[in-house]
Simulated assay, not measured.
Amino acid sequence: MQSPLFDFPESSDPIHLLEKDGRADYFSHFCKADESDHFFESLLNSLTWKADQINMFGKLVTTARKVAWVGDPQCSYTYSGVEKIPQDWTEELLQIKCQLEEMTGYSYNSCLLNLYHNGDEGMGWHSDNEKELDSSTPIASISLGARRKFAFRHKQDKTTVSVFLEHGSLLIMHAPIQDHWHHSLLKTKTVMSPRINLTFRNIIPRT
């Protein structure tokens, strides 16, 4: 079942994307334009970006997109069978985190960043349901750079809901969304410029 594609004008009010099994709130302009430009350039040049490795059908596959895992020292994280050790917070990331926590009322101790060089790079259907994630804290996803199409697909009835993620926008995914929906960053031949996605998370420290 196909739902309409959402394409919203600038607004400070959240748009509620899903009608069941979790809540996704979209803010088209979380960061101002000049802030978004500054954050994009700073993060592109200040972080250590590495090719991602994912486990597909028992084999490690190296992706074209690059990733950076940033967080508090105890926030090691296993994604698709690969353990990630966090880099230290940068000044810009702490500024974004503080702004995000003040707005949402939640605390975050880590951030997974993805660098997509162009529209040929995307993310397949998946859920963020790793055991280290605190499911009571929503995942907050900030987009910087190229405008890209993002989609949800319900695990049972296959309903899809799509939205264009703007430069400086924020998408908040509340529980139990990961239990009922997959999501994906769709590939496209029309986008030639890069995008950085920041997903702020709360990791349960290992004991």
Rank of each mutant, 00 (worst) to 15 (best):
T199N: 10
S169H: 04
P9E: 03
V61F: 04
E35W: 10
K131Y: 14
C31D: 07
N118T: 00
E166S: 04
P9D: 02
V67F: 13
A175R: 14
I203C: 08
R148N: 06
G81T: 03
P205W: 15
F8D: 01
R148T: 03
H126V: 04
R65S: 05
W125N: 11
S46F: 00
T199Y: 08
P205S: 13
H174I: 15
N129E: 15
V163W: 03
G81C: 02
T78I: 08
L198S: 00
D72A: 10
E121L: 06
S3R: 09
S127G: 14
I203H: 11
R65T: 07
Y79L: 00
K149V: 12
F152R: 05
M123G: 14
G105A: 05
Y26V: 05
K131A: 06
R195C: 11
A64L: 15
Q95F: 04
C98F: 15
Y108T: 05
G22P: 10
K50P: 12
I96V: 07
Q2P: 01
Q87A: 11
R153G: 05
W125M: 13
E91Y: 05
V163H: 02
D7L: 02
L198R: 00
E132G: 15
N109C: 10
L185A: 02
F57H: 08
L198Y: 06
H38I: 02
D134F: 12
D25S: 13
F152L: 07
L93M: 02
L94W: 00
S42I: 00
Y116A: 07
R201E: 05
K189V: 12
D134N: 11
D37G: 01
V67P: 12
K59L: 03
H117G: 08
K50F: 14
S3T: 11
M123D: 07
L165T: 10
L47C: 03
T160S: 06
K20P: 03
F200T: 01
Q74T: 14
I15M: 13
I142T: 02
S135C: 13
Q178F: 07
N197D: 07
N202W: 12
M123F: 14
K158H: 14
Q53R: 10
M56Y: 09
T137I: 15
Q156V: 11
S127W: 04
L60M: 12
K20A: 10
S42D: 00
G119L: 01
F8S: 02
Q95E: 02
L186Y: 09
D157F: 11
S11P: 02
A33E: 11
G105H: 02
K187G: 14
R65A: 07
E41I: 00
Y108V: 03
S169W: 03
P86Y: 13
P14V: 00
H29K: 04
V191D: 00
F40C: 01
V163N: 01
F39C: 00
M192A: 06
L170Q: 13
A51E: 11
D88N: 11
D37H: 04
Q99F: 09
L93F: 01
T63Q: 08
H180L: 14
I172L: 02
K20V: 12
H16T: 12
P86G: 12
K131G: 04
D34Q: 06
F30V: 03
Y77G: 06
G71C: 09
Q178I: 12
H126W: 09
T104V: 04
A51C: 15
I54V: 08
R153L: 10
L185Q: 08
D21F: 07
I139D: 06
